[in-house]
């Protein structure tokens, strides 16, 4: 049970770090347009490659 004295404050610290990371992500437009990366991946696709002569 003594481990709880470590785990509980640790969870509090992790909580604060997670909160900070999430706020940072939101404020820095990381969650603005979640579809964009998928769309770009499709648009940048050059299509089927030409067969290479061996």
């Amino acid at each position: 049970m003594m481990m709880l004295w470590v785990l509980i404050p640790l969870s509090a610290v992790l909580l604060i770090i997670a909160g900070w990371a999430f706020f940072w992500a939101v404020d820095n437009d990381q969650l603005e347009n979640l579809d964009e990366a998928q769309r770009q991946a499709l648009e940048l696709d050059d299509g089927p490659q030409e067969p290479v002569d061996k």
């Binding site: 969870s11 909160g19 999430f22 939101v26 404020d27």
Partner: peptide, 21 residues
């Protein structure tokens, strides 16, 4: 609109993390 969305996301995050804990 983005500002309001950010506020919502932060409040949802804070309350969901709080709820889980």
């Amino acid at each position: 609109q983005l500002k309001e969305q950010r506020d919502f996301l932060k409040r949802i995050f804070v309350s969901v993390i709080g709820m889980m804990q």
